[in-house]
Write a protein that binds this DNA or RNA. Structure first.
Length: 489
RNA sequence: CGCGGGGUAGAGCAGUGGCAGCUCGACAGGCUCAUAACCUGUAGGUCGUUGGUUCGAAUCCAACCCCCGCAACCA
């Protein structure tokens, strides 16, 4: 029995944001790994967490605008996020919500622990405060010294906040980052280390009067925790108390020690939070650092620049899904988008890659093997008919694919799956089982070999396109010919 | 001189001292079991610019040009 346990989490999006293509990339990447790990380690040994960050000023303001309570507001939005995950077949085990009472309790416990370690202190903070926005502004946010939204000069306000001694952990974090292959991609290390070397203590609370929607500081009811401080603790809180957040049938044994340290997926803007702030917090809590930080790239618009609302060059995951289907989008995000580097999202590429690799290469191979075997009445299901040399070649591909997946090199892994399917097409062309010269015995061996190859391709594809891959296996077993992947025009 | 990444075929990328590669796209031939598919082959690149080191540079060094991200709700 394998007792290795694997835990991974994505970042928690602000719940009032609309899911965009970057979230889709992060979730799909994480989902592919989770599905792979479940296959290798067993369902019960894999835990894939996802969730929503539900506190903060934005949520509070939006709820007020809509005339609903913040809780009602976040309930609605969390539901949308879950639907988004379902739409893209994201097989999370827990969907964590920071507005949940159990999260409040646990976040407060961590606060007290950090405080007991002498890492939290009170300090006066002075800043430019816009009364209209009810928030502090930085100099750069101002236009001609005035708030761009309200056209009013902000006033200088001082308030007392709690601060976290992040600077205390600089050396610890720098040492940890050099202790192994912690961060992917490697070239982001310089950036992170730069930031860590200069990191200062951070404000981790707000005056409750100004921001009633948050978690109370345990020792001071006039203050609430700053969203980052509470939200980040989710990654380990869920391991303590998963009951409220788990999918039906979830029965994983809880406890940090069983599952942590885990693997974290996050985007480019989160590098300093996940790699710096959160790691400092973990050190303060006396909990191990993250096992692996996976920093995916940014999905850029087709012209290679950042997607933005003002430029109107954004790509909506919902539109893409409607246009091409869930699995085509999933496939493109893994096969066409660089796993760790910034990449442009081009619909033309999505179509080409889908047509070339799924319809023409794999889908067509599947169909031709089934049609041939039906035509000649061949049973390819007997594994004794598989040629051993052929089998070891296929197995070699599979082990290469798996070792790439172990290293989270998702795009390279798909390339290998594609190569394996191509090998099938080359093989069938070379051996021509349709030729009149072939004996039944020869046809049986050729088609058995190919059936074995197809089965393996489908199994590897099942992490990326789970529904189609299962359908492929089903068609193969039932010898049911047909078009599995229709071409996209 | 804020920090970091990048500039290689029409497109997306790999290649960190030894004959310029991969996928897609384009084109030609072959095959006919198959989804106008598949197989084989062809075309297409002064590797951002200039200078240097070297027997030899896409790769190392220097300077410069250009693009992108972060710094500012945002994966």
């Amino acid at each position: 029995m394998n007792n290795e346990k694997y835990y991974q989490t994505t970042t928690l999006p602000y719940v009032n944001a609309n899911p965009h293509i970057g979230h889709t990339l992060e979730f799909v990447q994480a989902d592919v790994v989770a599905r792979f790990k479940r296959k290798k380690l067993g369902e019960e040994n894999v835990w894939f967490n996802l969730g929503a960050d539900e506190h903060g000023l934005k949520m509070y303001q939006k709820a007020k605008e809509k005339g609903v309570t913040p809780q009602e507001y976040v309930d609605e939005y969390s539901k949308n996020w879950k639907e988004f995950c379902d739409l893209f077949l994201i097989s999370y085990d827990t969907f964590y919500r920071t507005s949940d009472p159990s999260h409040h309790k646990l976040a407060q416990e961590w606060w007290l622990r950090s405080e007991a370690n002498g890492d939290i202190y009170k300090k006066e903070y002075t800043g430019l405060y816009c009364v209209g926005c009810e928030e502090f502004k930085t100099e750069k946010q101002l236009v001609d010294g005035k708030c761009p939204d309200h056209g009013v000069e902000p006033i200088v306000v001082s308030e007392e906040n709690y601060f976290f001694k992040l600077s205390k952990y600089r050396d610890d974090l720098l040492k940890w980052l050099d202790s192994g292959e912690i961060l992917k991609p490697d070239h982001k290390k310089a950036e992170l280390k730069n930031w860590i070397s200069a990191m200062e203590d951070i404000s981790i609370s707000r005056v409750k009067e100004k921001l009633p929607w948050g978690i109370e500081v345990p020792s001071d009811p006039t203050q609430v925790m700053y969203v980052w401080f509470d939200a980040l603790t989710d990654y380990i809180n869920v391991l303590k108390d998963p009951t409220e957040f788990a999918r039906e049938g979830f029965d994983k044994d809880a406890g940090i020690d069983n599952w942590w340290p885990g693997v974290q997926f996050f985007g480019p803007d989160n590098l300093r939070f996940q790699g710096g702030v959160w790691q400092g917090m973990l050190a303060s809590f006396g909990v191990a650092h993250t096992r692996k930080l996976l920093n995916h790239g940014m999905v850029l618009a087709a012209d290679g620049t950042k997607m933005s609302k003002t430029k109107g060059n954004g790509v909506s995951p919902f539109e893409q899904q409607e246009k091409y289907g869930t699995e085509a989008v999933r496939f493109y995000l893994i096969a066409g988008i660089s796993t760790f580097a910034d990449s442009p999202y081009k619909e033309e590429d999505l179509k080409n890659l889908y047509n070339a690799h799924l319809a023409d290469n794999f889908g067509n191979l599947l169909n031709r093997v089934i049609v041939l075997s039906n035509k000649y009445g061949i049973d390819y299901s007997d594994s004794n008919n598989i040629d051993s040399e052929f089998k070891s070649k296929v197995d070699g591909f599979v082990s290469e694919i798996e070792s790439l997946l172990e290293k989270f090199e998702l795009q390279s892994a798909v390339q290998k799956i594609i190569e394996l399917a191509s090998f099938g097409n080359e093989y069938i062309s070379e051996h021509q089982p349709w030729s009149k010269e072939k004996t039944e015995k020869e046809r049986e061996q050729i088609l058995s070999n190919l059936a074995y190859l197809i089965k393996n391709v489908a199994e590897q594809y099942s992490y990326i396109i789970p529904e189609s891959a299962n359908r492929a296996l089903d068609m193969l077993i039932k010898k049911e010919s047909g078009v599995l992947f229709a071409k996209i025009d």
